[in-house]
Structure formats: C-alpha cells, structure tokens
Design a protein around this nucleic acid. Structure first.
Length: 152
DNA sequence: GCCAACGTTGGC
DNA sequence: GCCAACGTTGGC
C-alpha cells in the first residue's frame, strides 16, 4: 500500500463533499498536468490519500481518503461542454486519467500548512516548497505518521 | 490583489 | 529544438 496526497480547493471538492457522500466514492477528474497524471496512474486500489485544501482561508490537510478505483480515462476530456475538454486527446489512447476516491476520515481539525512547514519530514517536499503547483504527489511513511500524530 | 514559479504554446 | 510570451496555480 502506498501513500499519496491530492490538492483541491474546498469549494470545488473538499472534505465536506466527501462527508456528504459517506462511503460513496467521488470521481477525481480534471487533472491536466502530466506529472500529476503519472502519479494518478501509479495508484492502486486501497492506497491511502491525504486531502489537502488549497486556495482557501485555512490551508492544510483535512482528512484521509482511499483509492477505490484505479486509473481510467477522465470522461471530461471528451466532453466539449466541460472546461476540462481536450480536443487533442486521442479516443483510442486517452491522454488524461481519473481515479475514484472515498472518505476514510475527516480530521477533527485541519493540519495547517504552517504546521507542515515546521516538520522535518516535509522539508524539501513539493507540498511546502514555495511556488510548487503539483496537485498529486506521493507521501512518505514519515510524513503520513507525522500528520496523523497531530490528530490522534 | 499581488506576484513567484512553473507549464505550455508557438514563432523562428 | 530553443526560448520568449503567456496563462495558471496558489501562497501570501
């Protein structure tokens, strides 16, 4: 089992959306960056995922999710009505990937970015590095444990 | 709202 | 294939 982190704006799809769904999965689509896509493709069913809230008032990790379906073609790339439509994506070899995620745990509080920045395990991380825009990334066991230790 | 950091695009 | 221009992400 591997550990990952995905970023999202909470108004777009945040921890509350997962809470509302209960144990039902949500399709994680709209990723349009090759490095992030490649990480999606490396995920396996059962992998554990931090949900990180970005571009909002309280920035940080809001809870944990679980991969319930491995990489499949992102349907939005073929939807001409979608902002994620990609007319250049070949139907026989779709460029963009989605996965399904469901809620495991909503933390009692957000583990804030300022706290992550103080952790040794997050120094040099693509998450805390200034200017980094990667929205899907692997998480080390140390990072996983350090975050969980703050929320019990 | 500002702007740094990147990724992508397109002219050459 | 280079690189300037441009657009977007996302913290501050």
């Amino acid at each position: 089992m591997a550990y990952w982190l995905v970023k999202s704006e909470p108004e777009e799809c945040g921890i509350e959306d997962f809470v509302k769904k209960g144990r039902e999965p949500i399709c994680w689509d709209g990723i349009r960056n090759y490095q992030a896509r490649n990480f999606l493709r490396a995920m396996s069913v059962g992998d554990a995922v931090f949900l990180y809230h970005s571009s909002c008032r309280v920035i940080g990790i809001a809870g944990t999710l679980e991969v319930t379906r491995k990489a499949y073609p992102d349907p939005l790339q073929f939807d001409s009505e979608s902002r994620y439509f990609d007319p250049a994506s070949p139907h026989d070899e779709p460029r963009w990937t989605a996965i399904d995620l469901r809620l495991v745990r909503s933390f009692p509080r957000i583990v804030e970015r300022s706290e992550l920045q103080l952790m040794h395990s997050f120094s040099n991380s693509a998450l805390t590095r200034r200017g980094s825009r990667l929205s899907v990334m692997p998480v080390t066991e140390d990072q996983w444990r350090d975050v969980l230790s703050l929320v019990g």
